[in-house]
């Protein structure tokens, strides 16, 4: 090799979803923080450019209460409205139509969830909602199972990003399915984002080393003892994992391969 690759390789390569360019590969959820100040500080520390948000009724008893938008500027961050809490396609589509009107944009995160305690993606509901949303002009980033057949079908329907879970939402169990995630990455022609299960920095690094486009994290940051410290840690882990992926890890050997030459040994 004539030249060394730039050390900043991972920090400079961007990615695109639905025609928009982003540099940060960490998407951060805005739920579960102590207050809006902590939310804003953690987002700042994370370097995220896309943040997920939920859509809920305004509290009419206290309409002057501070709103998320007062602390997390939608001009600075790309809001990605979600359908958390939606257990049917109908509810998800209704929620995102309201989100589109509130925010004025069409990029959304679709999640149709099964019942607790797993909150596993309800794939029939997800297909139904994705079809309706795409027909209605939405750009759909879709939370889904780590099922290559389902993921391919969602991609062929026109979803803008495929977002399988690494483990159940909020579980912090890390990437439980690295082989499946790897297979999904291999076949994906749109961004592939691990959307749930990250518990700490190393989990995010593993997802990125596998070759994910990005990682979506909420609970691991918001519920950490120090959310701002954890946001920085996960930011660094995403960058480290991306750089490791681009740099090509060594193959795993079932044995030793000495690091020092075997020639020239003293006898």
């Amino acid at each position: 090799m004539d030249t060394l690759p730039p050390a900043s390789l991972a920090l400079e390569d961007g990615w695109m979803v639905a025609g928009r360019q982003f540099r940060s590969r960490l998407i951060v959820g805005t739920g579960k923080y102590k207050d809006f100040r902590e939310t804003a500080a953690a987002l700042e520390a994370s370097g995220a450019e896309i943040v997920t948000v939920a859509v809920r009724r305004v509290n009419l008893a206290d309409p002057k209460a501070p709103m998320l938008q007062d602390h997390v500027d939608p001009k600075r961050y790309t809001y990605l409205p979600n359908t958390a809490g939606c257990h049917t396609a109908e509810d998800a589509v209704r929620t995102l139509r309201l989100a589109r009107d509130a925010g004025g944009w069409t990029l959304v995160k679709l999640e149709v969830l099964g019942p607790p305690p797993t909150l596993y993606p309800d794939m029939p509901g997800t297909f139904e909602a994705a079809r309706a949303l795409i027909a209605d002009g939405f750009e759909v980033m879709v939370y889904c199972n780590d099922d290559p057949v389902a993921a391919k079908r969602l991609e062929e329907m026109g979803c803008a990003a495929i977002m399988p879970l690494g483990a159940p939402i909020g579980s912090g169990l890390g990437v439980q399915n690295p082989a499946m995630i790897h297979m999904l990455i291999q076949q994906a022609k749109v961004p592939l984002i691990v959307d749930a299960g990250v518990g700490t920095a190393s989990d995010a690094a593993i997802a990125m080393e596998l070759g994910c486009t990005a990682v979506l994290v909420n609970s691991a940051i918001a519920k950490a003892q120090n959310p701002i410290g954890m946001a920085r840690a996960i930011k660094a882990a995403v960058e480290a994992g991306r750089l490791a992926h681009l740099s090509g890890r060594i193959p795993r050997l079932l044995g030793a391969d000495p690091s020092s030459p075997l020639t020239g040994l003293i006898r």
């Binding site: 959820g29 805005t30 739920g31 997920t52 948000v53 939920a54 998320l68 809001y79 609970s219």
Partner: peptide, 10 residues
């Protein structure tokens, strides 16, 4: 009528 807004969510 439903009046909604954005709140924190994952």
């Amino acid at each position: 009528l439903e009046i909604v807004h954005f709140i924190g969510g994952g």
